[in-house]
Amino acid sequence: SSRTRFTDYQLRVLQDFFDTNAYPKDDEIEQLSTVLNLPTRVIVVWFQNARQKARK
Rank of each mutant, 00 (worst) to 15 (best):
I29V: 07
L11E: 14
D19W: 05
A54L: 10
V45P: 06
E30G: 13
K25D: 07
F6G: 04
F18D: 00
D8C: 08
R5L: 15
R5S: 13
R55L: 15
V42C: 05
V45A: 09
Y23E: 15
I43E: 01
L14D: 01
F6H: 04
Y9L: 13
Y9M: 13
P39T: 11
L32W: 03
T40M: 15
Q31R: 11
D16E: 12
T20P: 02
I43Q: 00
P39F: 00
D26E: 07
R12M: 02
F47L: 11
L11P: 00
L32K: 01
N21R: 07
P24S: 00
E30C: 07
N37I: 07
L11C: 04
N49L: 07
R5K: 15
W46C: 04
D8Q: 14
K25R: 11
Q31S: 11
S33E: 06
Q48V: 10
T7M: 05
T7I: 04
R51S: 08
A54S: 12
Q48D: 11
Q52V: 13
I29L: 11
R55V: 07
R3H: 15
D16Y: 03
Q10P: 02
N37T: 14
I43A: 05
T34N: 07
Q31G: 09
Q15K: 11
V35C: 13
I29G: 00
I29H: 02
V13S: 10
K56C: 05
Y23C: 06
V42D: 14
R41I: 09
S2M: 14
V42P: 07
D19S: 08
E28I: 01
T7N: 05
R5M: 15
R5W: 09
D8P: 14
A22V: 09
A22Q: 12
A54I: 09
S2I: 10
T4V: 02
L14Q: 00
D19H: 07
T4R: 02
V13R: 14
Q31L: 05
Q10I: 03
V13G: 13
L36M: 08
I29W: 04
F47H: 02
E28P: 00
F17Y: 07
Y23L: 12
N49V: 05
N37K: 13
K25F: 03
Q52L: 08
D8L: 06
A54Y: 05
R51P: 00
Y9S: 14
R41C: 12
A54N: 14
F17E: 05
P24H: 01
D27V: 03
V44Y: 06
R51G: 04
P24T: 01
W46M: 00
L11H: 06
L14A: 01
F6N: 03
L32G: 00
L38Y: 03
P39L: 00
D27H: 13
F47G: 04
Q15A: 11
L11F: 12
V45M: 06
K56F: 12
S33H: 12
K56M: 10
E30W: 04
T34I: 05
S33K: 01
S2W: 03
R41G: 13
D26R: 11
Q31H: 05
A54E: 12
S1V: 15
D16C: 04
F47Q: 01
F17D: 02
L38I: 10
R5Q: 06
W46N: 00
I43N: 00
L32T: 00
V42E: 15
T4H: 14
R41A: 14
R3Q: 13
E28F: 03
S33C: 04
P39C: 10
D26N: 09
R51M: 06
T4N: 13
D19M: 10
A22L: 06
P39A: 08
D27N: 12
F18A: 09
Y9W: 13
T34E: 07
S1C: 14
P24L: 03
Q15L: 11
N21V: 05
N21I: 07
R12K: 09
T4I: 12
L36D: 00
F17P: 00
Q10C: 03
T4L: 14
V35R: 13
Y9G: 14
D19N: 09
W46Q: 02
F17K: 09
P24E: 01
A54G: 10
Q31V: 06
T7F: 01
A50R: 08
I29M: 11
N21C: 15
L36T: 13
R12Y: 01
N37A: 11
R3G: 15
L14P: 00
T34A: 11
N21H: 06
N21E: 07
Q48Y: 05
F18C: 08
R41M: 10
N49I: 08
Q15Y: 05
I29P: 00
I43M: 03
A22C: 13
T20V: 07
R12P: 02
K25I: 10
P39V: 01
E28A: 11
E30R: 13
R5P: 12
